[in-house]
């Protein structure tokens, strides 16, 4: 049911306004692509200039990263289903799917920080705990790893906040404007997923 009050005066119709919101979000995601693009440029340069890059990458806990990739991909699927449920007006189902997405997002962060803790224990964290961190490319690799995954974890957190704002107050999922917001929050979540899809082979699977 369209909420007439939701149309801002500069838009002729609600449809146009929703369209504009969606378009603006996609442009914003393009800026996110380029922000992470800078990190990937650094990573690719490191790999191109240092033959030992693969050696450094082998020390990663690739299975934690692999599980985390699966977790994020699944959460992306859930949030896509959530958007479908909101559009179909099935608020309760949407609520469960949203809850599932957020839970998986939290699992991702928990695993990520477990991994950080393991690395701290192993003494391969630059500056903080670098007992076993040899100089050269290994050090550069770990610097890059913490910058890249840290920036990504920050985006996961922002995504969780966006999704969380849908959860509360509960039941808002019925209104059409909320469907638009849910769609845009889901888009953001998918982009965070895409970034990880590229970070995983870049950091963990270079052998």
């Amino acid at each position: 049911m369209p909420d007439a009050r939701a149309v801002q005066p500069q838009f002729p119709t609600l449809e146009r306004q929703n369209d504009a919101d969606h378009f603006g979000m996609l442009l914003f995601l393009s800026t996110e692509v380029l922000i992470f693009g800078g990190v990937f440029a650094v990573a690719f340069t490191l790999r191109a200039e240092h033959a030992d890059y693969a050696q450094a990458s082998k020390q990663m806990h690739y299975w934690i990263g692999g599980i985390n990739t699966g977790v994020l991909l699944t959460s992306s699927a859930l949030v896509a289903l959530m958007v479908e449920a909101v559009r179909a007006g099935r608020a309760k189902l949407a609520g469960w799917l949203l809850g599932g997405t957020i839970a998986l997002g939290l699992v991702f962060l928990a695993l990520k920080f477990t991994e950080y803790a393991l690395e701290y224990r192993d003494g391969v964290v630059p500056i903080l705990s670098d007992a076993n961190l040899h100089g050269g490319v290994e050090r550069l690799f770990m610097d890059l790893y913490f910058v890249a995954t840290g920036l990504h974890a920050l985006h996961v957190t922002v995504g969780l906040c966006l999704l969380g704002s849908l959860l509360w107050p509960f039941g808002r999922a019925r209104r059409e404007r909320t469907a638009v917001f849910a769609g845009n929050a889901a888009l953001y979540w998918h982009l965070v997923d895409i970034v990880w899809v590229f970070l995983y082979p870049t950091l963990y699977l270079a052998r």
Partner: peptide
């Protein structure tokens, strides 16, 4: 909308 998202990848 496809362009809006694709342009980020293209410029990267």
């Amino acid at each position: 909308q496809r362009i809006a998202l694709g342009v980020g990848f293209a410029w990267l």
